[in-house]
């Protein structure tokens, strides 16, 4: 397998605050890696380092085959960065934005016009070409942003929270565009706070929390870590709750009153085994439900952003 990004031991502090702590990361060529994490986890800092905007305090990385620290210009030639806010010039028209960026990418003069027309068509912006980008809708701005990014056929695109602030329809359009570009062979490193987005787009998810990668894997693997099916048992009174705790060796769920969760493989055999043990102990559950863990649960289990630790921060 070849990798478009290989990062080793990246660390970065701002003053006394450690933002990234010994981060290792690989993005295999042609895949989508989603950096998932709560606000302040260090996602943007990691992207800014890999996009040559920021120097790491410690660590090294190879991006698109170039060394990040010794050949930043080589890296810049192979990447494209889309920030948290669409990085386009509001005062210029869509076409002028593309022309300006094409010149800055040093396209031959005669190639600028055809390439710009091609991108306007490809990203469904031909009708809005002569309108100022400032008058575009959120979805159009993102499309222009991606079109600008595609001018020089980058090997690696960074998308920093690409759908923040987009309505659901524009978000779906953006996802479709990303999938199309992936099919064309572009490698993506995207950051997001939305688990659904990571689930929809990513081949690999790396969960970042307080500057560290706390988990990584395919969306499926991360979900499987919590068990294929979770059995949720609710009890009518404290006595039966305590009895069930003793006989099932289950984790108490402090945020839900008199409720236990037991991970199972989802088979009838395992579910009935749990229920039989309750029966044998003479404990009656008032309600039994079974559900698949969502990525949200994986996320809350992995990061410090759960309700308990939030209390501690305050």
């Amino acid at each position: 397998m070849t990798y478009t990004v290989i990062a080793r031991g990246l660390s970065k502090s701002f003053g006394a605050r450690t933002v990234l702590d010994q981060v290792d990361l690989e993005v295999s060529t042609g895949s989508v890696l989603a950096l998932l994490g709560p606000n302040g986890a260090g996602k943007t800092t990691l992207v800014r380092i890999l996009a040559t905007l920021l120097r790491p305090d410690v660590g090294a990385a190879t991006v698109a085959g170039r060394d990040l620290l010794t050949d930043p210009v080589g890296v810049k030639r192979s990447i494209s960065l889309t920030g948290q806010y669409a990085a386009i010039d509001d005062v210029l028209t869509g076409q002028e934005n593309l022309e300006m960026m094409a010149r800055l990418r040093h396209l031959p003069r005669r190639a600028v016009g055809p390439r710009v027309r091609e991108l306007l068509a490809e990203f469904n912006l031909a009708d809005a070409r002569d309108r100022r980008a400032g008058t575009y809708s959120g979805g159009m701005r993102r499309r222009l942003d991606l079109a600008v990014s595609m001018i020089s056929h980058p090997q690696l695109m960074f998308l920093d929270e690409p759908t923040t602030g987009l309505d659901p329809r524009s978000r779906d359009q953006l996802w479709a565009t990303v999938r199309r570009l992936v099919a064309d062979g572009v490698t993506f490193l995207l950051t997001t706070q939305y688990l659904e987005e990571a689930d929809q787009l990513a081949d690999t998810i790396a969960v970042l929390d307080r500057g560290r990668v706390v988990a990584r894997g395919t969306p499926e693997a991360l979900k499987a870590n919590l068990g294929a099916e979770v059995l949720r048992l609710q009890f009518a009174d404290a006595a039966s709750y305590q009895g069930a705790l003793a006989c099932l060796a289950a984790e108490p769920t402090p945020d839900r009153l008199r409720t236990l969760e037991v991970a199972t493989d989802g088979s009838a055999a395992e579910v009935s085994a749990v229920l039989r043990r309750l029966d044998d102990a003479g404990v009656a559950a008032s309600k039994v439900t079974s559900h698949r863990p969502s990525l949200d649960e994986v996320f809350l289990a992995l990061t410090s952003a759960g309700p308990e630790s939030k209390e501690l921060v305050r």
Partner: peptide, 13 residues
């Protein structure tokens, strides 16, 4: 105050 300077700086200019 815009993202555009970041974009410029991530380009080989």
């Amino acid at each position: 105050s815009n993202g555009i300077v970041d974009r410029f700086r991530s380009m080989p200019i």
